[in-house]
Amino acid sequence: MVGNRPIKFRILELCNGGKWNYEIVEQIQKEYGLKGNFQRDSINFDIIELASGGMLKDVEVKVDEEGIYKKGFLLHKYELTDFGKIRAADACLMYV
């Protein structure tokens, strides 16, 4: 059952334990078969939208020194907020 629900649902699911944005993007690209930089940025924008919507919060930030994602830019580690858990539960995702 991979890659058949809306991308943002899956992002919420992945962030339950806390995850770095480049890890999320990589996994989503793989699961949904989305290739290329445009899709990569598009997925990252989904994460940003979820964060500014208050469903994710960044718990850790570091500068991308080695260019894992984009060199010189920030990498964010996200975790689900309480509000995010409620919204995820509305979307029938499994959380305690």
């Binding site: 058949n4 629900r5 899709q39």
Partner: peptide
């Protein structure tokens, strides 16, 4: 152009939450 028809199909199926 944005290649989002796949996502549209996935979203429309989520009637209750979305």
């Amino acid at each position: 152009v944005l290649g989002k028809f796949g996502e549209m199909k996935r979203t429309v199926k989520e009637f209750h939450p979305c």
